[in-house]
Simulated assay, not measured.
Amino acid sequence: MQFYPLALEGITLVEGPVRADPRGAFMETWRADYFENAGLPNSWVQDNLSVSVHPYTIRGLHWQTPPFAQAKLVRVLVGEIVDVVVDLRPSSQTFGRSISVPLSATKNQSLLVPAGFAHGFCTLVPNTMVAYKTGARYAPECERGLRWDCPDVAIDWPLNGNEPILSEKDASAQVLKDLSEADLF
């Protein structure tokens, strides 16, 4: 496995080899020893699966506060997404900045998102399936959300002129400037 640090400290693109033959392909998607040797989070407590029927579905931007802050390891099983992370660490030089990372089921890639970041994605094709591991269990009392169209962050979502499909919770999430210190890291 190869680990590629991205523009926000801690965000890492993980890429593994694909072993193809006439039957199809085999790939390792995660191995604790590889992550440990790279100094990356390698303790996962929950697996989640998200299925989005329509393209331009935006899920997020979500995170959990301590004591249930979550690292995530995100992978696309079917379809394509643009994955987005926002730095929510006030002491970071990149606080409030975001990056977007295209992920596809056709590549053996995952995105490692440590605790301290809001996370979300936009589906690009119908019937997209996204799986992700989390480093802490789901704790609704610690769950927080940042509006997908927060003017303080100005994410360039790949909507191509389409209206996004959002949950009520995501549509009414807070903007960055209105988050309290307790909501951040």
Rank of each mutant, 00 (worst) to 15 (best):
H119C: 07
F121H: 11
F121K: 08
C122E: 11
T123F: 03
T123H: 01
L124H: 06
L124R: 12
L124C: 07
V125Q: 09
V125T: 14
V125R: 01
P126V: 08
P126S: 07
T128H: 02
T128F: 06
M129R: 12
V130N: 03
V130F: 07
V130A: 06
A131D: 01
A131G: 13
Y132R: 01
T134I: 03
G135W: 02
G135E: 04
A136I: 05
A136L: 02
A136Q: 12
A136P: 05
R137V: 14
R137Y: 15
Y138W: 13
Y138I: 11
A139Q: 07
A139N: 03
P140L: 02
P140K: 05
E141N: 01
E141I: 03
E141F: 11
E141P: 03
E141S: 12
C142P: 03
C142M: 10
C142K: 09
C142I: 01
E143Q: 13
E143A: 13
G145K: 09
G145Y: 05
L146E: 02
L146M: 12
L146P: 01
L146A: 11
R147H: 15
R147F: 11
W148T: 04
W148E: 06
W148V: 10
W148C: 10
D149P: 02
C150D: 14
C150W: 00
C150P: 04
P151V: 00
D152F: 06
D152A: 13
V153W: 02
V153C: 09
A154Q: 13
A154L: 11
I155D: 08
I155H: 03
I155L: 09
I155Q: 00
D156N: 08
D156G: 07
D156Q: 14
W157V: 01
W157N: 02
P158E: 10
P158I: 04
L159P: 00
L159V: 00
N160G: 12
G161Y: 02
G161I: 07
G161V: 07
N162V: 11
N162D: 14
E163R: 15
P164A: 03
P164H: 05
P164V: 04
P164N: 03
I165D: 03
I165A: 08
I165Q: 13
L166Y: 07
L166T: 12
E168G: 13
K169A: 12
K169E: 08
K169H: 13
